[in-house]
Design a protein around this nucleic acid. Structure first.
Length: 281
DNA sequence: GCCCAGGAATGTA
DNA sequence: TACATTCATGGG
């Protein structure tokens, strides 16, 4: 990689983030899961995790400061504090913190999150990754970074003019209309996703759910990964079991400002260890 | 062939 | 409010 910049990033584990289900355009480049090609919007970053929290990056120090520190969420939450609080609770929360240590909430483009989680509904993460790659190849713009060529995430304009039958042909199934109508709403300016960042969570969620195909879970994912709202709490089929275990609303009550981060730890736990033995908290 | 995959919209009671 | 059904498709 060219222009190697070495930086320290605490509480960051690339493999953990890559497997956390929030990013669909990370490609593992080595055997161990220490090196990835990341495409975010229309940017590319090669990143490699070395020992003791040091990382090699394919960008200049200035690009790291201007773009990637924000992407990796180094201007927001104090992860060590949240981890410590979860550990102190003991039981499953302690185990979840251990299972999820190193996960960070990536601050991604809300437009990209909208289309990504519309795509990912009711299919496996692996299949969603394949579909999104096809979408970028067909509707994205070709970009260059050094000697590497890559496809940027498609613009709203580009997807707004896509044909339903073409999306079907790619394998999107019934999501074709959802994606095209969402693209048209954003391309027309009827919904300004970036402005949602300045609204409170509940209001932003109402706007999102008003988009055809966006239900509770997808809205929470967009809010968490695209709007940077840590209080968002996506409840999927796995986390639903966790809710049954703790009692409904327990996590959000105990971590009102950071439920989404804890949700990521719990998700990491159930995917690795399966569901906990019995209920009660 | 059957079942599931980090769901959402619609209909029914 | 709480369930049930439908929607497409690929992979195990």
């Amino acid at each position: 990689m060219t222009a190697t910049t070495i930086v320290y990033m605490g509480h960051c584990n690339l493999k953990q983030i890559a497997e956390s289900g929030q990013c669909f355009r990370w490609k593992q480049l080595d055997e161990e899961g220490n090196k990835y090609k990341i495409i975010a919007g229309s940017r590319l970053l090669i990143i490699e995790q070395n020992a003791h929290g040091y990382f090699g990056l394919s960008c200049t120090p200035r690009e790291f400061d201007d773009i990637w520190t924000d992407y990796f969420d180094y201007s927001g939450a104090d992860y060590s504090q949240i981890l410590a609080k979860a550990e102190a609770k003991g039981g499953l929360l302690k185990d979840a913190a251990a299972a999820g240590e190193g996960i960070r909430i990536l601050r991604q483009d809300p437009w990209e999150m909208l289309i990504t989680f519309l795509t990912a509904q009711n299919i496996s993460i692996q299949r969603a990754t394949t579909l999104i790659e096809k979408l970028c190849n067909k509707y994205g713009q070709k970009k260059h970074s050094g000697d590497t060529t890559f496809m940027a995430f498609p613009s709203p304009d580009s997807l707004a003019t896509a044909k339903p039958e073409d999306l079907r042909q790619l394998g999107f199934g019934y999501r074709d209309k959802q994606i095209i109508t969402a693209a048209r709403i954003v391309a027309s300016g009827a919904v300004d996703l970036d402005k949602l960042k300045r609204l409170d969570h509940d209001t932003a969620k109402l706007v999102l759910k008003n988009i055809y195909g966006v239900g509770d879970k997808v809205a929470e994912c967009i809010s968490l990964f695209g709007l940077g709202k840590y209080e968002s709490y996506p409840i999927d089929t796995w986390v639903q079991k966790i809710e049954d275990y703790f009692g409904h609303g327990y996590i959000q009550k105990e971590f009102p400002d950071h439920a989404g981060i804890v949700q990521q730890y719990l998700f990491a736990y159930v995917r690795r260890h399966g569901l906990p033995e019995r209920g009660g908290a």
